[in-house]
Amino acid sequence: MMPLYLGVDVGSVSTNVVAIDGKGEVVDARYLRTQGRPIEAIQQGMREIRTATSDGEIGGVGATGSGRTLAAAIVGADIVKNEITAHAVAALYEEPQVRTVLEIGGQDSKLIILQDGVVVDFAMNTVCAAGTGSFLDHQSTRLGVAIEQFGDFALQSTSPVRIAGRCAVFAESDMIHKQQMGYGLPDIVAGLCEALVRNYLNNVGKGKDLQGPVLFQGGVAANAGIHRAFERALELPVTVPEHHGVMGALGAARLVRDEALRGSFSGSAFRGFQIAGHTYRTRSFECDACSNACEIADISHDGEVVARWGGRCDRWQYRERERTAVSD
């Protein structure tokens, strides 16, 4: 049996695990909530994906997302890649001609511009969470509309209300204002979708020339209201890939598969599915060796240190990885 490749994407809101086969086809994909406990989410993901892999050989593991270093330490990864590159790789598999990738996740959003299959520009939102999944989550709870139906709700609208979407706080008060004025809920929800898209295009897409084909990825791509608002604003068809929610993990899996087939590493660093049953001890402390007062995090299993970081010097470094090759 051909080995499978795993991609693990640990984000602020969701932790996704994907298994692909040697041809790059998705065997299984899992979308889980991180809920502030990334290690447990990774373990749960491993437990779930294990069934789908029927204990087949794992040829390599790729880690991505803001928790990629943690994921790599826990699972044992052969490749650790930033989420921008991972998303771009996944998008290129989906649509080799892709020019624009819109990605909206739980707490950040990205825009990737490609040309001839190469990333030529990208942007990430900085300090503002308006328009990201967390904000939509919050609004759906407040309005009592399930997040899964939020988008369809927006589609019922015939004339969206104009909502100030510059800032999540203002957007919320403006929504409440419109609601107290008696506007219909679908029109308000649709207005919110348009406001968030406007905000995204103004902040993240500032000064960039967006051309088709356009892919819309990330958890928020499931929202039909946002999807439609993007198509209207860009005046371009926007495609939502089948595995839109796990594209980062998919990109990481495909990257590691490519590297494995290219022979860049021999024998995966994968620690095995048993890590799902491990008990990890995490602790943190402030180093008092100098005025930097670094906050050191230390993760161990059975008395063995799995990861330790946070220091600016070597004092708490527990092992050194040798670089496998010159990067170019």
């Binding site: 803001s66 930033n82 921008i84 590159t85 190469v118 990333v119 520009d121 990208f122 990430m124 990067s327």
Partner: peptide, 16 residues
């Protein structure tokens, strides 16, 4: 955020 951007930027330059 800085680290992610730097990694992605270096990837971009290398790919170019």
């Amino acid at each position: 955020g800085i680290q992610t951007r730097l990694e992605a930027f270096v990837d971009l330059l290398r790919a170019r």
